[in-house]
Nucleic acid binder design. Sequence first.
RNA 1: GUGGGUGUAGCUCAGUUGGUUAGAGUGCCGGGUUGUGGCCCCGGAGGUCGAGGGUUCAAAUCCCUUCACUCACCCCA
Length: 419
Amino acid sequence: MEIITAVKGFKDILPGEAGKWQYVEDQARKIFSAFGCLEIRVPILEKTDLFARGIGEATDIVEKEMYTFRDRGDDLITLRPEATASIIRAYLEHHLYAADPVAKLYTIGPMFRRERPQKGRYRQFHQLDVEILGYEDARIDAEVILMLIHFLKSVGLKSPQLELNSLGCPSCRPSFRESILQFLQGKEGDLCEDCQRRISTNPLRVFDCKMEGCKQIIAQAPVIQDFLCGGCRDHFAGVLASLAVFDIPYTINPRMVRGLDYYTRTTFEITTDFLGAQNAIVGGGRYDGLIRDLGGPDIPGIGFAIGFERLLAMMPADQCDDFIKPPGLFIAALGTEAQKFAYQLCNRFRMQGIPTEMDYTAKGLKSQMKRADRLKCRKVLIIGDREIETQQADLRDMQTKEQIKVRLDNSDELIKLMM
RNA sequence: GUGGGUGUAGCUCAGUUGGUUAGAGUGCCGGGUUGUGGCCCCGGAGGUCGAGGGUUCAAAUCCCUUCACUCACCCCA
């Protein structure tokens, strides 16, 4: 019979790699909470409407990537393609803003987008997501970036490259959009098919195009910085000034736009050279209109999402060796009586918090030693029927090969010895 | 959705102009060492050659179809 395999683009995280995941999550929790962020856990399933309104109807994510279906009650629901919309939904639904308009939140979990899988891109992938709601101050933008880069470095990332831009706000972006449309007028024929389509759907996205022809045209195009209103210009200057306080290097990329419609003002990306085409490991920015657009009060927000798989792929191999605990003790038991004794002792050790392993397949000592070695146990307690009689067993140190006699008749003493 | 690449042992891969019983390394199990791991030596198990069809005396090899994986485009974390 044929075995059933996982769904395309959905990956197993095997025991060998789960330690890395735990390590990164652990670091994130420590650092994010030091910066005052609290964890929030939101459902992975939401009403489709939430994403359509939040991310934007005309975005690729909403148009062709979401897992959307009707459930048995005929409700139209979607597996979340990102976390921000859900977090804001929860913030509004539970009136968190009433007690305190400022909320600093993070969440960790799976997201779903039905794209063609490739390196660094899966249909179920994971994000570390931070959202700071209630502050408009430019210092917060820089603080969020500081926290992010501090975290990335703490997990061993060598040189995260920060790219920044400002997308303006509803009062200045339209004039920029107009001038782009004017600029592109008459040049449609020289653009790629996708960009020709973008002119009517989302002209700003032409900036993102990687086709040589489009890039050349765009190089001549007006840049948003020249169109920012006074408020947006001051805000962006404030972000840069605050980044300077922490000596955070950045490059301003006036062509960087985002694939989600809700971004305003500051946007940023962290990129790397080591991931092939999927070089963005973090994307984020400010979304001052989103909470209002989702039916809430006019509260500003900023956040980012880290691609977990992409981050792991870039981490040094030995980064979390210390975090993954070595197994500790192996009990090699030979003979029926010894097995009985070891069975009890092994589980007693475990209940004391001493990670202990033994073998139940009645093999010889040699193969048990082999297994202890493979599990990287530091010590092996060797018990045969002979040792049961004398109540004295050998405790072997696997590194130094030193072997000492230990008494078996006092389990409290034994436990102390192991700890 | 569109292109390219790859499918042979658990894993990484050889396999000649089609030719007889499909190999190596590694891992696993056992032995050398009657109760002591890693190194070394020896042995063993493990394969519908991705699947289906075709050509041929003969197909892992050639042709067609299909599936899976993978990289890239698109888009994004």
